[in-house]
């Protein structure tokens, strides 16, 4: 459902972009449409990246399809018309390699780490993963989503075992954080960038470096008909100094 919502918002952005494109570039030839499937944690960064790319390539329409990398991967394998895929883990990209969907060498995009998101003021005084046993309800990403698998690794490293009956699973990183920012979950394990994007609605608690993971983000062209120049241009833009500056501003580390 939340993936569908993301697609819907993506489409809405694209519609807005279409109107903008038609008014600004009546001289250019038929506008090219670029569909980018991106991990939900990249939402803010990729909206800005897409807007920046459109300014550089007038007449191009960028459609964002945001969701858990594992869901996006499944969509691409089921034949979704996607041109570029930006995933929050290597596993999703490698899965596309083995199913023969990659049209370019995957490039590293960014790195990210996990944080514990708590209610403003940290009412339960949680100081790290070991304290999560005190949280009545903990929100985690779906077990197959990258953030869900990263969280499982971190919890394992910290030697924390949590009862199943206290774990609520979100469909992707952003949906998982919503359980704390809008709902009644006491804590969530999400990316540090998600906590930052949520502003004052939540507060971040650092996870000890020895327990934390370093999430690898990468992107590749997956267009069924083969890469077009515009697809390569987008990948180049995202990995350029300019694109990387946008990612840094949203809290992502260098790849």
């Amino acid at each position: 459902m939340l993936v569908f919502t993301a697609i819907a918002t993506g489409t809405a952005t694209a519609t807005a972009a279409t109107t903008a494109a038609t008014t600004s570039s009546s001289s250019t030839a038929a506008s090219e449409v670029l569909t980018v499937s991106a991990a939900a944690s990249l939402t803010g960064a990729f909206r800005e990246l897409a807007a920046d790319f459109r300014r550089r390539h007038p007449g191009t329409v960028v459609r964002l399809n945001l969701g858990a990398s594992s869901s996006l991967l499944r969509q691409i394998q089921a034949g979704a018309p996607v041109d570029v895929f930006a995933a929050a883990d290597r596993t999703s990209i490698e899965a596309l390699r083995s199913s023969g969907h990659l049209r370019s060498q995957p490039l590293p995009l960014a790195r990210n780490r996990l944080q514990i998101a708590v209610k403003p003021g940290n009412p339960l005084r949680l100081r790290g993963l070991a304290d999560l046993g005190r949280a009545p309800v903990l929100a985690l990403c779906g077990a197959t989503a990258p953030c869900g698998r990263y969280a499982a690794t971190a919890l394992q490293r910290a030697g924390v075992r949590l009862e199943r009956s206290r774990l609520s699973r979100g469909t992707d990183a952003r949906a998982t954080l919503l359980a704390v920012s809008r709902g009644d979950a006491d804590a969530a394990i999400v990316y540090a960038t998600d906590v930052r994007a949520a502003g004052r609605a939540v507060q971040g608690v650092e996870i000890a470096a020895a327990q934390n993971i370093s999430a690898w983000y990468g992107l590749a062209i997956v267009r069924a008909g083969g890469a077009r120049p515009i697809d390569r241009a987008f990948v180049d833009h995202a990995t350029s100094a300019r694109g990387q500056a946008i990612l840094r501003r949203h809290g992502f580390a260098a790849p």
Partner: peptide, 24 residues
Amino acid sequence: ITFAGNIEGRTQTAPLAVYLLLES
């Protein structure tokens, strides 16, 4: 999923499970 969350065996109803099981 928005109001009651998605806790296995507690608030994860069949439609929620269908969506989450689809991947695993």
